[in-house]
Design a binder for these strands. Structure first.
Lengths: 221, 221
DNA sequence: GAGCGATGGAACGCTACCGTATCGACGCCA
DNA sequence: TGGCGTCGATACGGTAGCGTTCCATCGCTC
């Protein structure tokens, strides 16, 4: 079924035979899955519920995916693996603000802001989900972070040793907390100010500790 | 039943009559709830599962709470509403590092790191849970933030207008993202460095509009 | 010492889903 | 044009949890 679903997703028809999975049914199911995920979460999501919401028979679902896990993984990983563009704005602060805008727009969408935390929580207890999200999101993220930081280093805005993982924490953490966890509305100018703060945070690691503190021993690069 | 549960929770005995809710049974149920929450999440948590895990009859559970929602709310809000001490370390950076240590220790506990994101995700779709967590966590948080920032302002480390909510985002966001979302292990010295970065972030908000981009490297202290 | 009432256990009828099977209808492909 | 295979529908037996009820037991309070 992984095969069949793939074929449908890619919008090609099977080479031989006839009578083909209908594209519109597949689309309806996909939509229903995302809506059900937002409404009841992964834990409570049921095949019957999805079929009901999509207005199709259970058969149509089982013909495409063999289990709820497989179905959800295929659908969300497709959405999650899109990479963001990452234009070069000319400054670290500008780059960060751009990323924050993109992320905040995404997290303000009702479906996304319910589905993402739910799946991340589920990932903590289901290794397969964890692995898939890891692949889809983290790799992407790290790549983006390295690009963004590489630029800043080239510009002389950051020291060469800056850790991309920590940078992701500093950039994504606050906006994610605000929108997906605390769910507090953003005041005017919030993203812009946050960008400034985060840029300052990245620009001033280690530098000021007057104590004999340990340094980051791990993660080279 | 709220009454009976309350009585048991407060560890007082009913004034009249006899034959009382057993404290050890109540404790066993509480433990089972937290374990079930971590294992399967709120969405899949079932009364039967809790009773099974606690080694008690369903009856014992229903005698204390009338529904899974009420049960979970009572149990988690009790745990969540404890406030952290917040010693004055003498500097903003020190205060932040202390908070980060406390938070990171809490989030590294297996149960907490699974239950908290799960409940927060659930809160996004269940108003009662959202409200309870809001009460238990956010109020506490804001108070702590105001205290911490008030001190820094008094020391002259921060300008007077600093927004406590944004401060929470900057302080909690990165460590929460790291531990509860990305679930990446912390390298040596991470918390200390993060504290420095966050202090720098807090020290340089808004400045972007008025001042020509000061880089906070040697500013504080 | 008496009895109230909580205890675990078992069973109740009920609902929701599971995953599978079978049906006639019909559209697409060879 | 023929037939393959998907379509929605419906039904299947099975599992799980719901919330309630009844039970004999036994510890605590008076």
């Amino acid at each position: 079924m992984g095969y069949i679903a793939l074929v449908a997703a890619v919008r090609k028809r099977p080479a031989a035979g006839a009578a083909v999975l209908r594209e519109d049914v597949t689309t309806a199911i996909r939509q229903a899955v995302t809506q059900e995920l937002a409404a009841v979460g992964y834990g409570r999501l049921s095949i019957e519920g999805v079929a009901r919401r999509a207005g199709v028979g259970k058969t149509a679902v089982y013909r495409r995916w063999s289990s709820k896990l497989e179905m959800v993984l295929e659908i969300v990983s497709e959405v999650a693996s899109q990479s963001l563009p990452l234009l070069d704005t000319g400054s670290l602060r500008g780059d960060i603000e751009m990323v924050l805008h993109v992320v905040s727009r995404a997290l303000r969408h009702r479906l996304a802001s319910q589905i993402i935390p739910d799946l991340l929580a589920e990932a903590a207890r289901n290794p397969k989900i964890g692995h898939t999200l890891q692949e889809a999101l983290r790799a992407n993220q790290r790549q983006a972070s390295e690009l963004l930081i590489g630029r800043a280093v080239a510009r002389g805005e950051l020291p060469a040793g800056t850790d991309p993982d920590t940078a992701v924490d500093l950039i994504i953490g606050p906006i994610y907390w605000r929108l997906a966890v605390a769910r507090t509305p953003l005041p005017q100018g919030y993203v812009s100010e946050l960008a400034t703060s985060v840029a300052a945070a990245l620009g001033a690691p280690i530098s000021q500790s007057s104590f004999p503190n340990e340094r980051t021993s791990g993660s080279s690069r």
